[in-house]
Design a protein around this nucleic acid. Structure first.
Lengths: 342, 342
DNA sequence: TAGTAAATTTTCCGCGCGTAAAATTAATAT
DNA sequence: ATATTAATTTTACGCGCGGAAAATTTACTA
C-alpha cells in the first residue's frame, strides 16, 4: 500500500475517483454499487488501507451493527466456548460483536448493561448470572434493546430464550446410571441459576418415576469457584459419611471435577471398573471433562446448535422487530457422553 | 428517576441549569468544575440518568479513553484470568477496556488489530499468539498505538514487555525435582510462543548445571488444544517406552493435564507417594491445576503483579509518550507450588 | 435510436459532542 | 470597595460520516 495516509472518506473517495456517498454506500453493502465502481473502490482500498471512522459511522447510523454478548463468567471454559461460537456467527452475519464477562458479580452485570446501552447495539445475547441478576435492571434493558437470553433463563424476560432442556437431559443420565449400577444421589451447591433448580427437580422426578428414592446432597459455597466448592464440600461429605449412594450425579461438570479431586484425596477410586468404589457423573461436557482422571461421564450440550439458534433468533428480531406476543423459548436436547467415571 | 428521556447533552444541560460545555467538562473530569455546579449536575444526573453519546465523545476527543486488551485464547483460563485482572486495573484508572481473543488464529489476531486501530485506543495490552503472529502487521500496529506486550514476547516489538522470567522459574522446578527424585525429562509440543523455547533452554541449562543429561521429548500437535496434544502425545510416548525418566516436567500445565490423563488411561499411577511410578510437573499454575488427580505441582505466575505492572507501564506511555530509547522489559519471578503430582 | 430503469453524483443537512476564544460572572485578595 | 484571579457561559466551529432529495449519468431494452 502507498505511503500516503488517508484522513477520511472524502479523501479516499477522491483517490478512488468515486463520490463520497457512493463510497459510503459501498461500505454499508458492497453489492449495492455497480461492479465497475466496486472494483475501483477495492483497488484503491488495497493501495491505501482506509477504514471508515468507527465512531462517526455509529453516531450517524440509525441502528448500529453492534451485537453485545454477555456471559456470566468467561474464565469458565464452557462460557468461553459459547461466547466464541456466538462471536463467529455474528461476524458471519455482518455484525460487530463485543463480548463482556460479568465475572460472576451483579455489579459488573449491571455496569455492562449500562455500557451496552450506550453502545446502542442492534441486539444483545445475554447469558445472565441468573438468580443473582437484578431483575428490574435487566427488564428495563430488555425493553430498550432486543435481547435474547441464553443458557440461563430469567422467567418472562427478553424476547426469547435459548437453552438446554434439563428435563430431557437429566433423566437421560439418571436412567443410564440406574441401568448400569446403583441409583445416584444428587450433588449440588446453592443454585446460581435456574438450571441448577431444574436439574434437581428433573433428578427427583426421574428417580421417582423409576421407583427409587431421590437423595439430594447440598453443600455450602458462594461464587463461581465451582471446583473449589465441589472439592471442599466433597471432602466434608465423604468424611461425614453423608453419601447415600455409591453413584453421584453432580449438578455440573465443574462441581464434579472438584468432587473427584476430593475423592482422590481420600483415596477413593472413582470409575466403572471393578476396583472402583464410586461413580461420578457430571453435566455440560465441559471442555476439560475429557481429561479428568478418570474421564468424566456427562451430558453434552450442543454448543453449535445453541449459538446458531440464539444468533438466528436475534437476527430475526433485529430485522422484523420484537413481536409483542408470548416469548419464544427454544430448548435443545442434551446427549449422553459415556466415559470412564460412571 | 424521572420518566422524561434526555436526548442529548444540550437537553441535559438545560435540565440541570448549567451550560453544555460545562457539562462536557464535568464528564471529562468532575473535579474540574466548581463544587456548587458539580452538585447541580449530579442532582440532575439522578433524576434523568443521562450518559454522553459514546460515539460522539470518541469521535471528537483527541485521544479516546479506550484500552484494547488482546489475549491469544480466552478459553484458556490462564488468559481469562489475566484479561480479567487487567480489565479491572484499566477501569480503576478511568479507562474503558475492550477485551478480544484471537482464538488461536493469526487471521483473528490481525483482524482484531485492525478493529482496534479503528477504535483509536489510548493504548493496547497485547498478549500475542507468539510465533504464529504476523510480525510485520504487529509492528505496524505498534508504530501507531502505544502497545505493551504481555506474557509472550516478540523480540523488539512494542514499547515494553511484561512477563515471567522462565530462566528463573524453570530452574526452580528442575532443582526441586532433582533434589527429591529422579531428574526430569522435558515434555513439550511444537512451541507456539517464545516462552516454550525459553523453557526448554532453561531446562537444558539447569540440568547441565546440575550434572545431569537433559532429555527433551517433543510430541506432534497444532493449535491451542494443549490438553489433547498432551494426551495423545502422552499415549504414544508411554506406549513406545520413550520415557527416559520417571519424572516428567511439562512445558505448561495444560500439557501436563493431558499427559496425566494419558498416564491414567494406561494405568500408571502418578504422584509422589510410594505406590506411584511417575512424577509429573507443570508450569503456570493453571486455575484447574489444584483439582487434577493428583493435584499438579507447578510454577505459579503472579497474575496480580503482571497485570498491575503491565497496566502501569502502559499508563506511563499514554501520559508521557513512548520513549524512543530501548524497550523496557520487566520479568517477574515464578514461585514453586508443591502439590502431590511431583 | 429513443426510451426507461437503475446507478451514481451532487448538494445539503444533521448527528452529539469536544474544544477554543472571547465575554461574562463569581470568588478571593488587597 | 476595587483589583485580581478563577470559573463559567457564550459563541462558534469542526469532527467524519449517514441519509434524503434532486440532478445526472449509465446501462439496458425494445
Amino acid at each position: 500500500m502507498s505511503g500516503q495516509k488517508i484522513r477520511n472518506m472524502e479523501e479516499f473517495a477522491a483517490k478512488s475517483g468515486v463520490s463520497r456517498p457512493t463510497v459510503s454506500k459501498y461500505f454499508n453493502d458492497p453489492t449495492s454499487v455497480r461492479k465497475s465502481t466496486r472494483e475501483r473502490i477495492e483497488e484503491a482500498l488495497e493501495r491505501y488501507n482506509f477504514r471508515p471512522n468507527l465512531y462517526a459511522v455509529n453516531q450517524n447510523r440509525r441502528l448500529t451493527k453492534n451485537i453485545g454478548i454477555v456471559v456470566p463468567y468467561v474464565a469458565d471454559p464452557f462460557f468461553a466456548e459459547i461466547a466464541r461460537t456466538i462471536e463467529r456467527r455474528c461476524i458471519d452475519a455482518g455484525f460487530s460483536p463485543s463480548t463482556f464477562s460479568s465475572h460472576g458479580s451483579v455489579e459488573h452485570e449491571i455496569e455492562i448493561l449500562e455500557t451496552l446501552r450506550s453502545m446502542r447495539p442492534a441486539g444483545v445475547l445475554l447469558a445472565p448470572l441468573g438468580r443473582a441478576s437484578d431483575r428490574k435492571k435487566v427488564e428495563a434493558f430488555c425493553d430498550d434493546v432486543p435481547t435474547v437470553l441464553v443458557d440461563s433463563n430469567i422467567e418472562g424476560l427478553g424476547a426469547a430464550f435459548i437453552g438446554l432442556d434439563n428435563f430431557q437431559s437429566v433423566p437421560l443420565m439418571v436412567e443410564y446410571l440406574c441401568r448400569t449400577g446403583e441409583p445416584p444421589c444428587f450433588f449440588e451447591m446453592p443454585p446460581v441459576n435456574p438450571n441448577a433448580n431444574k436439574r434437581r427437580s428433573a433428578y427427583i422426578q426421574s428417580m421417582e418415576r423409576l421407583g427409587h428414592t431421590p437423595h439430594v446432597i447440598r453443600v455450602e459455597g458462594q461464587g463461581w469457584d465451582f471446583e473449589d466448592i465441589g472439592y471442599s464440600g466433597g471432602l466434608r461429605v465423604l468424611d461425614n459419611g453423608e453419601l447415600s449412594s455409591r453413584t453421584v450425579l453432580c449438578s455440573n461438570d465443574r462441581l464434579a471435577i472438584g468432587f473427584m479431586a476430593a475423592a482422590y484425596e481420600r483415596g477413593i477410586r472413582v470409575g466403572i471398573t471393578d476396583e472402583c468404589t464410586l461413580r461420578i457423573a457430571g453435566h455440560d461436557d465441559h471442555p476439560f471433562s475429557r481429561f479428568t482422571c478418570p474421564s468424566l461421564t456427562t451430558i453434552s450440550q450442543d454448543y453449535d446448535a445453541i449459538s446458531t439458534g440464539s444468533v438466528e433468533t436475534l437476527m430475526n428480531f433485529i430485522e422484523d422487530g420484537v413481536p409483542s406476543g408470548p416469548r419464544s423459548d427454544t430448548l435443545f436436547d442434551g446427549h449422553l457422553v459415556m466415559r470412564s467415571s460412571a
